[in-house]
């Protein structure tokens, strides 16, 4: 990565972007061919499900991809956070045409897909900032990549498992994702939070309104801002470039 610090340099980011869009498109086309075109009648629920599955799959794939997103490092100073944010937002927004295609194919009422995309972007930015923060603290340390990956894994998967065990332990009856019996802190997991949101949008119920979603959005927004600012402020933060 060159020191000019462009958020977008054609190289690795280009590969990420094109691969990301291609994988999502493939997944959508597969759903359309395998599920939708085999159905006999018309069931709008099928397309709402497509939206839910697509968004969840998208977040998982995005978390994987975004940890490799080149930002140019925190060394570029004040412009760093802005540039990183712009790049991550564009990557996060790139499935938007595909989501619209789901609505178009199913002729269903469009859900407000900007909300989940915002959460995705904020979460992605937090991941990128964490990685660059680690890089600024200890440049070139071989555990940096591992720590970032483990962080994503623990937030997305381990907390999800924790939620599962907790509800089993309490013998709670979970009727919907945003359930009162789920500890609120678990909704800091963006996967749970996003799934709950799109489930609501697709006609499922919610017992807590959209509060868990906004809490999650705010939390990761603040986390990203804090990590990013910290990375820039660290003296001698050399970045990865």
């Amino acid at each position: 990565m060159n020191a000019a610090g462009n958020f977008h340099t054609g190289g690795e980011n280009g590969v990420l972007e094109s691969l990301y869009v291609a994988v999502l498109s493939f997944m959508l086309a597969a759903y359309m061919i395998l599920v939708v075109s085999r159905e006999e009648g018309y069931d709008p629920g099928l397309y709402r499900n497509a939206y839910v599955y697509f968004m969840v799959f998208d977040l998982i794939l995005f978390s994987l991809f975004v940890s490799f997103w080149e930002t140019g490092g925190a060394a570029q100073g004040k412009a760093y956070l802005l540039r990183a944010a712009a790049g991550v937002i564009i990557l996060a927004a790139s499935p938007a045409p595909l989501i619209l295609a789901i609505f178009l194919a199913g002729r269903i009422n469009p859900a407000n897909f900007m909300l989940p995309l915002m959460l995705k972007a904020v979460w992605g930015l937090a991941v990128v900032c964490l990685r660059d923060f680690l890089e600024a603290v200890k440049p070139g340390w071989r555990w940096n990549g591992f720590l970032t990956g483990f962080f994503i894994f623990s937030v997305l998967v381990l907390s999800g498992l924790l939620a599962f065990f907790l509800t089993e332990y309490r013998q709670a009856v979970i009727t919907t994702l945003y359930d009162r019996d789920m500890p609120g802190a678990l909704f800091l997991n963006p996967l749970l939070s996003l799934a709950g949101l799109v489930y609501c949008q697709a006609g499922g119920g919610s017992q807590a309104g959209l509060d868990p979603f906004y809490t999650c959005l705010l939390f990761w927004g603040l986390a990203a801002a804090a990590l990013g600012t910290a990375a820039v402020k660290i003296p001698g933060g050399a970045g990865r470039g």
Binding site: G10, N13, G14, V15, L16, E17, S18, V21, A22, S25, L28, A29, M32, V36, S37, S94, P97, L98, A101, L104, A105
Partner: peptide
């Protein structure tokens, strides 16, 4: 559905080309 498929393919190609354009 075919129209939408072809548009998706077009999107993938255009996005890929733009991403790798340099």
């Amino acid at each position: 559905l075919y129209l939408i498929f072809s548009l998706i393919i077009l999107y993938v190609l255009a996005a890929g080309a733009a991403a790798l354009a340099g």
